[in-house]
Amino acid sequence: MIADDILLAELGLAVTAYALLGGADFGGGFWDLFAGGSRRGMPQRRLIEHAIGPVWEANHVWLIYAVVLLWSAFPTVFAAVASTCYIPLTLAALGIIGRGAGFAFRKTSTSLASRRAFGAVFAFSSVATPFCLGAVAGGIASGRVPPGIAAGGPFTSWLNPTSVLSGLLAVGVGAYLAAVFLTRDAQRERSELAETFRRRALGAGVAVGALAAVGLVVVAVDAPALFGLLASGPALALVVASIASGAVSLVLLALRRYVAVRVTAALAAAAIIWAWGAAQYPLLLPGVTISQAAAGPAVLHTLVGVTIVGTVVLAPSLWWMFHLFQRFPAAGAPERADGEGT
């Protein structure tokens, strides 16, 4: 059947978009956490706020979209994953509350103390949420989420070597992408911060690369089946592509090619996800293929139709939004100290 493959591809697209866009937003929170004391860190926090503010809600919708598409098209898979991984998913959900609310509240509150409190919540959840989501992905990839309701271990499914590694990788990739994206934003608006974020991007890039290398060893030991799949066929090609784009990104960063590096860094991150997908294909869960898990043809065809129509509306809207906020620098640069602490 073709409709289930199309929907799987859309799901992959949504997960990738969320990992890149939502991941970078989480990464912004990561740097917020390490921006330093409230006074010294203020310009950085402003830049982060400024870059994330208008787009985070739209970026966040990719997650919701992925979830509803998963349950509509592959309901048994959704039920299995959600029921087995209910602990990390609940934690991720609480993190999402803290993050979104902390961010929006901090933006509108003016006193330093409340900004600090909301900011702390924002920053902390920005790390906890991607870790939990990454850990769930690791549990699925290493075959620890069996089909059936709550059939897997509530702890072992996400507290295992592969999950911990993929959780850390999710945090790291987000931080890296955020640094890369922020470098360019900073360059456009406030050049001295561009250097700060360039250094961070380089550091994060090296750290994530090292983590990924360790990760391959961990996966080889912990989930040999997954490793075997990753080390052959199209998955291998994607792994190589990811490593190559990662290396090119470091060079581009060193050369201060901030626009080009956005593309290669995103590619490096996306290729990891696609490699996972290619390795698992056509299995969604252990012993469950796509066509076995897919909903009936009437549902699948309706969903394909609806998503095509939806995309026609969505694509130009998304384009307009990013265009609007990337093209025009804001009237006042974010460095203006307006009403801080009043």
Binding site: P54, H60, G310, V313
Partner: peptide, 28 residues
């Protein structure tokens, strides 16, 4: 969700698109 996720998936998928539109234009 296991038994009926696909039956009620359509309105939620449509809702997903509505959220996108809402979030994008609210941002703007």
């Amino acid at each position: 969700m296991d038994s009926f996720g696909d039956v009620i998936g359509l309105p939620f998928t449509l809702e997903g698109f509505a959220f996108f539109v809402e979030a994008i234009f609210l941002g703007i």
